[in-house]
Each structure stands twice: as structure tokens, then as C-alpha cells.
Design a protein around this nucleic acid. Structure first.
Lengths: 109, 109
DNA sequence: ACTTTATATTGCAATATTACGATGAATGAT
DNA sequence: ATCATTCATCGTAATATTGCAATATAAAGT
């Protein structure tokens, strides 16, 4: 098969999975950290920072964009990337919910 | 290729990626939610709860275990699963760090 | 118009993931 | 001892992901 059975799960579960899948790669974690670290939008110095080829970085950026976590605005020749607040907050809420639910009842094994 | 270049990234980035990849699937999100919801360890009623075959669930549990997020203790015929606090907390800290870093400087686009 | 610079797209090879049927191993009940 | 129950493992088919070379696109400078 190789294809996730999304129809079995809730919309929330599927959306959270998509967002987490987008972050779940060291290169994309590094990209997000760079974007957050540099106060302004980052204008694609990423290829130099990370040790990956330009098409690879471009592809990772595309995946982050597809998941809605970042947005890219064209600035002349280059493109400036930054966090997309609504989706980022959605992720934050979901994860906080997760962590809070566990903290409440961590009385098991 | 199809193989992540882990040697390029920091140990922290790689560990976070492994943990997030483990959660980044709706079935595994659902499993974690069930484990957290049921105060006690969950003793594998998961096959009935979710609509997936038993080998599939078993495989997902294995991946969560490999990432260190859950632990399973044998209880007679069945196996009881619960959150593995150290790794779960590590994930929580990492994610909180992420979210806190962004909240500080959300003054961009 | 031509060239440079910055990014995206395409195509491909290697590998990983998802799901499940069939089968195996271990415990508890009869 | 035999059987049912619970879970893990193996094998396999379908699909997804990762990374890059080659190429395309698009804006800006000369």
C-alpha cells in the first residue's frame, strides 16, 4: 500500500500529522530555527548555512510552505521566508493540548 | 538517495526530528491520544478503537517505542503501553523552546 | 539584448513508509 | 496437552521521501 488511511481519522488528527510531518526532518528544523532566529524574514542564505544543495533546500521550503507553516514573499530577485502565524499558532495550540492532557494525569507506570 | 544526511545537523536537531517523525502520522497521534486519555496504561484495545489491522497497529506502536515516546510492559497475555516520561518531556522542552523563540520576536511580515 | 543572480522545476536513483495477510511465539484457561 | 487469546514478526505490494544534477524561470544590472 504505502498510503495513509486518512479517512479513518479526524480532521484534527490529519491536520496535526501534516504539520508535524513538515517539521519532522532535521533540515526543515534547521530552516525553521534560522527563520525564527533572524528577526527579519530570511532571504535564502539558507543554502550557505546548511550543507545541502540549492534544489534540496528549495524543496524543503516548498514542503514547509505546503503545510502552511511558512510563507514566502518575492522581494525583487530573492524570496523572503517567514513563519505563517495562523498555522504556527494552530500547531502550538495542538501541541500544548497534548502536553497539558498528559501533565494532568501522569500517574501511570 | 532517499536517505537523510544526518551528519550535517546537530544531535538535537536529529533527535527532535526522530521524535516528531514518530508522532507525524494520524494513527500514531490517535494512539497517543488514547494512551493519554485512559489514565492507566492502555492494554491494546487499540485495534478496536482505530480502524486498522492488528499488524499495522503493532507496527505503529513499535515505531513509537523506537522513538522512545512510549514503553510497553508485558502483563500476562497482553501488553500495556504508556508514555515514557523522560523522552516525552524532552520533546515538550524542545517544542516549548521553539514556540517561545518565535513568540519573542514575532515582529516580521 | 545580454548577463548575472536567486530561486523553482524536472527527472531520476536510492531508500523509507504504510498497510495487511500469513504465520509465529507466549501466556492463560479448560 | 490442547486451545483460545494477544501480540509480534515476516514478507510483500503500493506509494512516499530524500537528495541532487540539469535545466528552467524571472528579475535586475550592464
Amino acid at each position: 500500500m504505502g498510503l495513509t488511511k486518512t479517512e479513518i481519522f479526524t480532521e484534527e488528527q490529519n491536520r496535526l500529522a501534516v504539520m508535524l510531518k513538515a517539521i519532522a526532518h532535521p533540515a526543515r528544523i534547521a530552516i525553521l530555527q534560522e527563520i525564527i532566529k533572524s528577526n527579519t524574514c530570511i532571504c535564502g542564505d539558507l543554502v550557505e548555512e546548511l550543507g545541502l544543495a540549492q534544489p534540496t533546500i528549495s524543496q524543503h521550503l516548498k514542503e514547509l510552505k505546503n503545510a502552511g507553516l511558512i510563507q514566502g514573499t518575492i522581494e525583487g530577485v530573492s524570496v523572503c521566508y517567514c513563519i505563517n502565524p495562523p498555522v504556527w499558532n494552530e500547531l502550538k495550540e495542538q501541541m500544548n493540548g497534548f502536553f497539558a492532557a498528559y501533565d494532568l494525569k501522569a500517574t501511570c507506570c
